[in-house]
Computed example of a mutant assay.
Amino acid sequence: MTSRTDIEALTSERLGQRLRELRLASGMSLRALSRELGISASAVSQIERGMMRPSVSRLIAYVSAIGAPLAAVFDQPDAGESLPDAMEAGGGPPVQGLAIRRAWEAAPIRLSGGVTFRMLSPVPTSDVEFFESTYPPNAISDAHGRFLKHEGYEVGTVTQGELTVEFETEVVTLAEGDSITFPCRRPHIIGNRSGTVTAVATWLIVHK
């Protein structure tokens, strides 16, 4: 059985292919998306062909522009293990709508700078994004220092190391166990300023 630590991240090619599938399904052309993202059509094409890994900011901006949830980017071959007849503890009535995805079934996404995203919810959940981010030493959500803003309300908890959340007028440092919440429309950059310690956090983005 494969353990969580043995899981390989999606290849650049598979990530790009998945993004292209989502864009085509949305009906947005490559050029229209490039204008929305403020980058060249060639750069969008390189991402979709797996020649360039997007940054955290670029990935979120990409899915926001085409109206897709972040969860849609992850490979979900069977969308979790559906157990409609699972019994409650003690032999109670069946639990309806129960879904389980085992740890070895959740392939993460590795972005530029080594930042990794892993979906935590077993199946896509309407109006909610629940995932884990891992920032290696000196990693940042946008290497060019551009602030990100998108739809929803963000709730995060650092589970290892330290993360900084930089806003336009202040910088907040979060240590292990610290939490933060803010509207995603507030421009922000997330980073790990440590040169030696990896930072891990869980994030809940609510779209209602």
Rank of each mutant, 00 (worst) to 15 (best):
I66N: 02
I66D: 01
I66T: 04
P69R: 02
L70D: 00
A71N: 04
A72G: 02
F74L: 06
D75R: 07
Q76Y: 06
P77V: 07
G80L: 04
S82T: 13
P84C: 08
D85A: 09
A86C: 03
M87T: 09
E88G: 14
G90C: 12
G91E: 06
G91A: 08
G92V: 15
G97P: 13
L98I: 11
A99M: 09
R101E: 04
R102L: 15
R102F: 15
A107T: 10
P108S: 12
I109K: 08
F117T: 04
V123P: 01
S126Y: 03
E132W: 06
S133A: 14
P137A: 05
P137G: 07
A139M: 09
S141E: 01
K149I: 00
E154R: 12
T157W: 00
V158N: 05
G161Y: 14
E166P: 09
E170R: 14
V171Y: 07
V172Q: 06
G177M: 12
S179P: 08
C184I: 13
R185M: 14
H188A: 15
N192Q: 10
G195K: 09
V197S: 03
T198S: 15
T198F: 10
T198H: 13
A199Q: 05
A199T: 03
A201R: 11
T202E: 00
